[in-house]
Structures are given as structure tokens and as C-alpha cells.
Nucleic acid binder design. Structure first.
Lengths: 153, 153
DNA sequence: GGAAATGGTTGGCCCGGCCAACGTTCCGAT
DNA sequence: ATCGGAACGTTGGCCGGGCCAACCATTTCC
């Protein structure tokens, strides 16, 4: 068959619903990010975890999950993959034996830099059609909406 | 354990990346839409299919999939569910026996109205923190980005 | 000392987007 | 007129990201 992503008929009225515009734009953004990260053998979770690890230093998996907004069960899985690649180290916490202390390795930091470079280019690509003030407008508005829906929902 | 959606630490620098803002806002939008539709026992695909069916009249599944931007294999599944609920009718096309002609029923149209009402309220909820001109700005900018990434990728 | 909370792990579900394979039917070019 | 390629419908499967439940070990609080 086809088989490819068909773009919906622009005449449909629902394609102008804000919820549609946002989720659809997000789909493209997600694709760009996914592809960009895949080019350095990573996925979204990997980046977020490494970035937080680099920012806040060695922590337990639970606090890492909290500060990166990733569900603990997913943290476990992603951390396994990162550890397999030697980008991260898991060592038992001597003071609290329930905990694993997770530390980013030098290789992990290098990989993080690669990912950051990649993602920077993705932003450029994503917002290509917008002028600089428009980009700022957009991020401001999105930030506003996001903040509103973050405190409580 | 927790178990709840943790919000990432706002101090992380990656939470200001446009790609993050968009996908994250989309997550909230998606939740609102999903919940709204679930309240009338529907999902996104159902709405899109019914809406297109109502707009363009009886068509084959393939063209329906194209005009609603849904992969054919997913159209089949969603159509099964709609047919089970009596919201849609599948009749073999006499002139081309490969095709099924899909028609929205009266009940389907009523259900569509319910969904539309629901979704209208979702938009309100989603954009609550924005003023009217801001909402227009946002939809304009998103539309722009979306258009840019739709021609080709 | 014992109940409750916390940490890690495993296994599973959902939605939406996608792909591959297969049988049926139709159509166009030779 | 035939025969190859294309379109149609269907099934079954994969992926990413978000989530939940259950479970055991450990620790903290009463």
C-alpha cells in the first residue's frame, strides 16, 4: 500500500483547532529531535538524564527521575542502556543501601556535548520559518501555557 | 512508589528549548483532548474519522484515511470500533469490489456533535492563560511552523 | 519494635504513528 | 486478451513516551 504519513485535508475545520496545531507541530518537533539524537545513538530519555546528571552531579535514581521529569520505571530502563554504553556509573550508596548513586562518566559528558550540539541545530530547523522576534513570541506563549498547566492538573 | 508525573526541575536549561516547550505543551493538550473524548467514549482517531466522514460524505477507507491523515491500517481498526458502536456503516462498493464505502450514521452524527462540543471546551481550557490576541498569535505562529514542515518531510 | 514511607526493579498497558506482508480486485500497456 | 503492476483492505507487529501496579529491601518515624 501507500504506506506513508498522509497529511490531512487542509479544508477540514479541525485542523485549525489549537490542540491540533500544537500536537501536530509537536509531532514534527519530536521527529526532528528523535532523528537528531538517533544520529548520535541516543533517545530523549538519554539526553534528559545525562543533562540533569551533568547539572546536579551524582544522585540517586529517584531524585534523578524527579529532576528530569521521567517516571522512575523508565529511568531504570534508560539508565541500564546508558550504563551499558559506559556513559554513566551506578554505585550502591553506602549510607543508604536502598539507593544507587548515579554518576556521569567522562564519556557520558562527551556524548552529552554531542547531543547538545545536535539539538541546537534541531531548534534552528524547527523554527526556520519564523523571524527572531516571532520565535521569542512563540516560546513566550508556550511557556505561559505550560506554566499554567504545570502547577496543577 | 511515587507514582505520578514528576515535573522537571525548572532550572534545567533544556526546559527552555523550543522543541521541549512544544512537545511538552502538546502533552498537556493531548491529555485534555484524550480526557475530553474519553468522556464521550471516543478517541482521537474516532473524532477525525467521523469529522471527515461528515464533511466529505461516503468514501472508501483509503481516501478517508488520506483526508484525515490517518494510516490505513489504523483506519481499519478505528472503523471497526465505530462500526461496532453503530456510528458508521461499511458497505461493499458495487462498482469497485476492492473498496468499502464508509458512511456516517445518524447516531454517528450525533456523537460527532458531542465530541465537537467537548473539544471546544478543551481549547478554552488549554489556552486559558492567554488573552484573545495572544491566542491568535500562537495559532498563527504554530500554523506557520506547521505549514513549513508539511510540504516535505 | 512495628507501621509507613522510600528506593529500585520488573512487567505490563495505552495512544498514536508507522511498516511489512498478503490476498483480492482492477486497470493499462503490450 | 492477457498479464503485470497498482490500489484496496486486513492482520500483526514495532517504537517512543507516559503511566500504573506489584514486589522486595531498606530506612525512618512513632
Amino acid at each position: 500500500m501507500d504506506t506513508r504519513a498522509p497529511a490531512p485535508d487542509p479544508a477540514a475545520k479541525w485542523v485549525t483547532l489549537p490542540s491540533w496545531l500544537i500536537t501536530q507541530t509537536a509531532l514534527h518537533a519530536h521527529r526532528l529531535v528523535t532523528d537528531g539524537l538517533a544520529a548520535v545513538d541516543a533517545r530523549g530519555h538519554h539526553f534528559r538524564l545525562l543533562a540533569e546528571l551533568d547539572r546536579i552531579g551524582p544522585v540517586s535514581q529517584a531524585t534523578l527521575g524527579r529532576s528530569s521529569g521521567i517516571h522512575l520505571s523508565d529511568v531504570v530502563a534508560a539508565l541500564n542502556e546508558l550504563a551499558d554504553r559506559g556513559l554513566v556509573e551506578r554505585t550502591p550508596d553506602p549510607v543508604d543501601r536502598r539507593r544507587n548513586t548515579v554518576t556521569i562518566t567522562a564519556a557520558g559528558r562527551r556524548q552529552l556535548r554531542r547531543q547538545e550540539r545536535r539539538l541546537a541545530r534541531v531548534q534552528e530547523e524547527l523554527l526556520a520559518p519564523l523571524s527572531l522576534p516571532e520565535r521569542e513570541q512563540l516560546t513566550r506563549l508556550l511557556g505561559e501555557v505550560l506554566r499554567h498547566h504545570s502547577g496543577r492538573d
